[in-house]
């Protein structure tokens, strides 16, 4: 099992908790004390950071470039890029589905609570992270052919 595969497992199990807990705290503060700039900024920062967290291996690779040991080669990069692309495609489908379902439930002249918007965003982050982790695992194969 190479480093990327280990990272994928960590990303899949711990990543969700790392982003969901602070995100949940921000939402709780907003509901408890009303919406202010701080929870909105906190929540937005977490969501954007979570959505662009896939850049982390590339940044680490750039920093490690001087070292002899190669942990993240071209094949890993390609697998990672394909996983990110698959996650973005599913995110797009999720976004379309969320919009169509809301439209169907309330009708074309209806209205929805503004609280639905951050929840949609949070759902998008969960979908993105889950699909990216799964796609990495599927591409490497379940058996663990790398060491």
């Amino acid at each position: 099992m190479n480093q990327t595969k280990v990272e994928s497992w960590l990303y899949f199990f711990l990543g969700l908790a790392c982003f969901l807990i602070p995100g949940g705290v921000a939402v709780f503060i907003a509901y408890d004390r009303g919406i202010s700039f701080v929870p909105v900024l906190m929540f937005t920062g977490i969501v954007i950071w979570g959505g662009l967290f896939w850049l982390f291996p590339f940044i680490c690779n750039k920093l490690r470039k001087g070292k002899k040991k190669v942990d993240f080669d071209e094949r890993d990069q390609l697998i990672h890029k394909k996983a990110v692309m698959a996650a973005y495609v599913v995110l797009w489908l999720y976004f379309v589905t969320a919009c169509v379902i809301a439209w169907c439930i309330v009708g074309p002249h209806g209205s929805i609570s503004v609280n639905v918007m951050p929840l949609t965003l949070l759902g998008g982050l969960v979908v993105f992270t889950t699909v990216q982790g799964l796609a990495s695992l599927i591409q490497y194969g379940r058996g663990g052919k790398e060491k």
Binding site: Y31, T44, S111, V114, P118, L121, G124
Partner: peptide, 26 residues
């Protein structure tokens, strides 16, 4: 993703909690 985050968070910040927005926004 950046635009999606901004589009979801800006209405939540500008409007009050529980305010309604037209579904055509989606």
């Amino acid at each position: 993703w950046l635009v999606f985050a901004a589009a979801c968070m800006i209405p939540w910040w500008i409007l009050e909690t529980g305010a309604k927005i037209p579904v055509v926004v989606l």
